[in-house]
Design a protein around this nucleic acid. Sequence first.
DNA 1: CGCCGATGTATCGGACCGATATGCTGGGCG
DNA 2: CGCCCAGCATATCGGTCCGATACATCGGCG
Lengths: 219, 219
Amino acid sequence: MLEFAILGLLQDGPLHGYELRKQLGRRLGGFRAFSYGSLYPALRRLVRAGLIAEAPDPEGPGHGAGWSRRGRRVYRITAEGKERFADMLADAGPQAWEDGSFGVHLAFFSRTPAETRIRILEGRRRTVEERRDGLRSALSRTGEQIDRYTRELHRLGLESSEREVRWLNELIATERAEQADASGGPAGRPHTTITGDDAGTAAGPGSGGERQDETTGGA
Amino acid sequence: MLEFAILGLLQDGPLHGYELRKQLGRRLGGFRAFSYGSLYPALRRLVRAGLIAEAPDPEGPGHGAGWSRRGRRVYRITAEGKERFADMLADAGPQAWEDGSFGVHLAFFSRTPAETRIRILEGRRRTVEERRDGLRSALSRTGEQIDRYTRELHRLGLESSEREVRWLNELIATERAEQADASGGPAGRPHTTITGDDAGTAAGPGSGGERQDETTGGA
DNA sequence: CGCCGATGTATCGGACCGATATGCTGGGCG
DNA sequence: CGCCCAGCATATCGGTCCGATACATCGGCG
């Protein structure tokens, strides 16, 4: 996962370890951090594999590639690395929607093929729905007898899952709309209508974060 | 963390590894799992440390302690283990409110001293508030320029944090009410008094959001 | 000028995961 | 009756990642 993330970040230009970590933290929104204890070994691994290489520091008095002013080591992605990253983006096995990986994949979604994006989103949805259903039934059956704090924990998890499913449904809907838009022009097949969307209810009273997603044509 | 959890579960009676893992998964609501690859070594470590010991299988034809009918190894907590667990409950250092640990601590909250409970809850709140604020400002500044999917990820994280803070506020309020009640008045127990402290919105069904470990994490 | 906080790289032990191997047991089915 | 399969149960191994720690440098501020 870390190696994937590094490769992804280096697509936008050479970076050194420290900066790499900061950018990654920002992208993931604190959602996943990656310590230096993972980062530097990963960097060396990637160099050994030929997927990245040391580059001259644009800010330092270049002694060619390698160390620079502040003892920084700057890295750039190689052609081979780009290739490998593209493969990883398209492959996206079933672990791509597990808790830890999903966020990282999402962080590089704009470089991910559209079909893979939808596949990941739907896989994630299935996963979260399962968790949600499990929590739901655990909470409903035998109200008494289980620990009060455990119940609170379950309540938090349940609402969390419900929220995330709704969020995923929005994203999926947008993806489909864009795909239909891009492929068929206005004549398109009614592809998009099938989304089950069980979470139709508007956010309740109070904190309604419900914002309609404007269709920004990113990518 | 795992050893802490094992000690906690064994307080309710002897269990074997397989069952231990199931119970733990249930308590944590899938929020944290612990694989066998961690569990069995941890069990052996705890035995070596004298905090738990093998016990006869109540369901098997007891050959004394050790293996039983189904090749099960049943464990019970020792006096020393109980002592150690009580210490861990009361200590609750600043890592107790990090993503991974918090849920586990909460799962054994009913055995945790009231003051420690509040301390953990408040520490957790501080942590989540920080994340929330970071996300908030990241989202507000420079609307354009950052990747659309990254923004979505941040949006989910922000909502998640907000919900968890609200949820924490409820829990803290309840704790405080109970503490005041217990120390001061002869009146009955407050059960689920939801005094809406500083959480502005009246709590309907409402709270939620958490994750990460994500690792792993809710988005 | 000296101190401090941010920058920057690096290592080490340990926790935990995921895949994998190996058997036993109970129940369903022909 | 005999067979096989699904669930129960323990165990190991390689690998990823974390947390603490160490150390060195740069830029500013009083």
